[in-house]
C-alpha cells in the first residue's frame, strides 16, 4: 500500500511539472522550447501515425527506434557476456588481476566517445563501429563487478564444493555465478545506462539512422519539436530499460534476503 502511494505521488509530481512547463513555454513562446503538447503531437505524427497493419507505428519507428535499440541492447549484451566471462576468470585466478589490473584501470579511464574516431577508422560507418563503441564503453563496470563478485565466494563454500567434489560446470554455474550475481547485476545496471548514452553518441557521429541521428537531423532542420520528441523518447527508453532490468533482477536475486528488504525499502525497487 505504502509502495503504491509513494509510486503514485512520484507520478503526480511529474504531471505537475509538465503542466507548469506547458504554461511557461506557452507564455514564453520560444522557438527553442516548444510546449510539451506540441512535442507530443510531433511525436505522434513521427512515430504513431502509421497504418493499422503495423500497429500504427510509422516506418521511422522501424528505421530509427528499432535500429537504435537493437544496437544498444546488442552491444550491452555482448559486453555482458564478455565482461562476466572475463571477470569470473580473472576473479577466480589468484594472480591474474595482479597482471591485468593496471591495464584494466587504464583502459576504463579512456572516455569511450574519444574512441569513436578510432573505431570509425577500423570499421565501416554504421553498426560495427557503433557496437564496438558501446561494448568498449560498457564492459568495464560489468568486468570489474564480476571480478569482485567472483572473489566474494567465501572459504566455507569453496571447501564445501571441493569436499563434495562438485564438477567444474556446477562450481562455476552453481556456486561462483550465483554468489557473484548481486555484483554482476550492479555492473549490468550501470552499463545499461552507459549503453544508452553511447548509442546516442555513436549515432551523432557516424550514422544515417537511429534516434541520435534523428535528433541531430531535426536540430539541423530547426525542427525543434522533433528534436525534443527524440530527447523525450530517449528518457522514456532509459526509464523503461531500467525498470525492466530491475524487474529481472528482483526475480533472479529473489533468494537474497537483503535484496528483498532493499527492494521493499526502495519502493519501486528501481
Amino acid at each position: 500500500m505504502r509502495r503504491l502511494r509513494s509510486a503514485a505521488s512520484g507520478w503526480i509530481v511529474l504531471l505537475v511539472l509538465v503542466v507548469l512547463w506547458e504554461t511557461a513555454t506557452r507564455i514564453a513562446g520560444s522557438l527553442y522550447f516548444p510546449p510539451p503538447s506540441q512535442i507530443a503531437e510531433t511525436a505522434r505524427q513521427m512515430w504513431f501515425s502509421g497504418p493499422v497493419s503495423s500497429l500504427f507505428l510509422t516506418d521511422v519507428v522501424f528505421e530509427d527506434l528499432f535500429a537504435s535499440v537493437a544496437r544498444m541492447l546488442g552491444g550491452w549484451a555482448i559486453a555482458g557476456v564478455l565482461g562476466v566471462a572475463l571477470g569470473v576468470l580473472l576473479g577466480r585466478s589468484a594472480t591474474a588481476m595482479d597482471y591485468c589490473g593496471p591495464i584494466i584501470s587504464f583502459l576504463r579511464a579512456i572516455p569511450p566517445p574519444t574512441l569513436v574516431p578510432v573505431f570509425l577508422a577500423l570499421f565501416t560507418l554504421g553498426t560495427p563501429m557503433q557496437l564496438a563503441t558501446i561494448v568498449f564503453g560498457t564492459i568495464w563496470p560489468i568486468l570489474l563487478n564480476s571480478v569482485d563478485g567472483a572473489r566474494s565466494v567465501d572459504e566455507t563454500k569453496t571447501e564445501t564444493a571441493r569436499a563434495f567434489r562438485v564438477s567444474t560446470v556446477d562450481w562455476i554455474f552453481g556456486v561462483v555465478l550465483p554468489a557473484a550475481s548481486p555484483k554482476i547485476f550492479a555492473g549490468l545496471r550501470i552499463s545499461l545506462s552507459l549503453s544508452l548514452v553511447l548509442m546516442v553518441i555513436s549515432e551523432l557521429v557516424g550514422s544515417t539512422e537511429g534516434i541520435g541521428y534523428r535528433l541531430l537531423y531535426s536540430q539541423r532542420q530547426y525542427d525543434f519539436p522533433a528534436m525534443w520528441a527524440s530527447i523525450v523518447l530517449l528518457g522514456v527508453l532509459g526509464f523503461l530499460f531500467n525498470t525492466g532490468l530491475s524487474a529481472i533482477e528482483r526475480r533472479v536475486l529473489a533468494w537474497q534476503p537483503a535484496h528483498r528488504q532493499a527492494a521493499l525499502a526502495a519502493g519501486t525497487g528501481a
Binding site: D154, E155, T156, K157, E159, T160, R162, A163, F164, R165, G174, V175, P178, A179, S181, W255, Q256, P257
Partner: peptide, 20 residues
C-alpha cells in the same frame, strides 16, 4: 578429495548455498 566423503562444517550459514 575422496569420492565418498562428506563434511559438515561449523558455519552452516556459509556452507549452505543461499540461492538454492
Amino acid at each position: 578429495v575422496p569420492d565418498d566423503l562428506a563434511v559438515v562444517f561449523q558455519d552452516y550459514s556459509r556452507s549452505l548455498f543461499p540461492w538454492l
